[in-house]
């Protein structure tokens, strides 16, 4: 059971799986079992992907979506950490707010889209709002949980040295929140991405979500798959990056 031969075996299993999935896809595409065009041949998807990656408009849409996600994610994270410290510093406040935060956190955020569109308009504002709203809850829950774990001795020592509120936040709370908040941020990035893409699908004139649904509406299915593949790859890469950052701490 050496590590090397096992790695080879894992690689072989993965390769075999990719080939089997590819073969199954091609068979399905050629069998005509599903409506024509729903499962286009992988060659057509590959050609569409190449066309997308060569299209400057694809990069405009991808950058636009990334901007909306990053802006909303940053806002939601900041608000989540601030609210988490404010509530988590007092046990009583955390207990009083807890049920409402958890209740809202488990509500599908998409239903707030109409409100967000009324408040922030139908442009980038509503997408940023959806991302902020989505990212806020995992972060605030992680921050409150992290605040409950802050060593009470540290707080008492800081207080006895007459630390001001801002010292307490900067020198005690924030350093002990880094680990729980980064794991909350990882979840938050995922839901912020979904929030932005869904808002773009519902109402938008640019962005990857809009691009995918535009292809769908004109029944350019291979192009839609190409956009979806690129979007999935970007989302998975962003998540892996966040995971690496979280582990570096």
């Amino acid at each position: 059971m050496t590590g090397r031969s096992e790695r080879h075996a894992v690689l072989a299993v993965r390769l075999a799986t990719v080939l089997a999935l590819w073969g199954a896809w091609e068979l399905l595409a050629r069998s005509g079992l599903l409506y024509e065009g729903v499962v286009p041949s992988s060659l057509r998807v590959a050609a569409a992907l190449a066309a997308e990656l060569g299209d400057p408009l694809f990069y405009r849409d991808a950058l636009w979506t990334a901007y909306e996600i990053v802006a909303g994610f940053a806002l939601g994270t900041l608000a989540g950490v601030a609210a988490g410290i404010a509530l988590g510093a007092r046990r009583f406040a955390a207990a009083a707010a807890g049920p409402y935060i958890h209740g809202l956190a488990s509500t599908p955020k998409i239903v707030f889209l109409p409100i967000v569109m009324l408040l922030c308009g139908v442009g980038a504002g509503s997408k940023i709002g959806m991302a902020a709203l989505s990212a806020f809850f995992p972060v605030v829950i992680a921050a409150i949980a992290g605040m409950a774990e802050v060593d009470a001795v540290l707080v008492r020592v800081a207080r006895s040295f007459n630390a001001s509120a801002s010292d307490l936040v900067r020198k005690v709370y924030l350093p002990s929140l880094v680990v729980p908040v980064t794991s909350g941020m990882r979840l938050g990035l995922g839901v912020a991405t979904i929030g932005v893409l869904l808002a773009e699908i519902k109402f938008s004139d640019r962005g990857l979500g809009h691009r995918a649904i535009q292809h769908y509406q004109f029944f350019r299915v291979a192009d839609m798959y190409a956009v979806l593949l690129a979007t999935f790859a970007l989302a998975v890469a962003a998540n892996a990056l966040m995971g690496r950052l979280a582990r570096r701490r």
Partner: peptide, 29 residues
């Protein structure tokens, strides 16, 4: 164990992929 080691990170990646975007395909199928 071999399958577990081969597939776990793939399934983990599915977690972060916005699978909801697949809905147009499901609508057609």
């Amino acid at each position: 164990k071999l399958l577990g080691r081969a597939y776990e990170s793939w399934i983990g990646a599915l977690f972060s992929a916005p699978l909801v975007l697949l809905y147009p395909i499901f609508l057609v199928v």
